[in-house]
């Protein structure tokens, strides 16, 4: 600021030139980015057809309680009486007793609809996103249970900690106006 205007040296010229160059560079970068800009923001989501339900989602999320939860696509569900997402591998009895359940937090409720169909609903506040039920349902059932990033919880970190630890590369950035990758009936 104390520079005297009458006293222009080579150093000032150099500095002003560099300054202009930097400003032009930033402008150029801005122009380049304008070409690449996306109108909508992007958010993290799990591709349910790539996910292997390894269980990392439950532990790697930066949140104490993972932002990933199990989602049930009811339209895909077979409403099985013996659900492999609900019952553990060796249940004592086929009933809702805690010792028979696969879910470590008891987040799935089983309700009778009509013979022989049962409906399974997930209590999201209990689900920890471990994916045990997903694995069971995918291996023996229709695969109606799958993991999804729940956007009311997700912080949308620049680098998702779970994505970095995902062994199957199932984590993707998707446009924020279509933030879920739900399974639909008829997809094989």
């Amino acid at each position: 600021m104390s520079e005297n205007k009458n006293d222009i040296t080579r150093r000032h010229l150099l500095r002003d030139g560099l300054w202009g160059g930097c400003l032009a560079g930033l402008g150029g970068l801005a122009g380049f980015l304008v070409g690449k800009l996306k109108k909508t923001n992007t958010v993290w989501q799990i591709d349910p057809y790539t996910c292997i339900a390894c269980g990392n989602c439950a532990t790697y999320c930066v949140l104490e309680e993972s932002a990933v939860k199990c989602v049930h696509a009811f339209a895909v569900c077979g409403y099985c009486k013996i659900c492999f997402g609900f019952f553990g591998p060796e249940p004592v009895e086929i009933n809702e007793g805690a010792e028979n359940q696969l879910c470590p937090t008891g987040a799935i409720t089983r309700t009778f609809v009509e013979e022989p169909y049962y409906e399974y609903t997930i209590d999201e506040s209990l689900c920890n996103g471990c994916g045990k039920c997903v694995k069971g349902c995918n291996t023996f059932g229709n695969g109606a249970l799958f993991l999804q990033v729940r956007h009311d919880r997700c912080l949308n970190c620049n680098e998702c900690s779970i994505a970095a630890a995902c062994p199957s590369g199932a984590f993707k950035r998707v446009p924020a106006d279509e933030p879920y990758m739900l399974k639909e009936a008829g997809h094989s």
Binding site: A75, G78, Y79, N138, F140, G141, N142, G143
Partner: peptide, 9 residues
Amino acid sequence: IGAERFPPP
């Protein structure tokens, strides 16, 4: 695996 083994009721 993961296909609809049990048709939705």
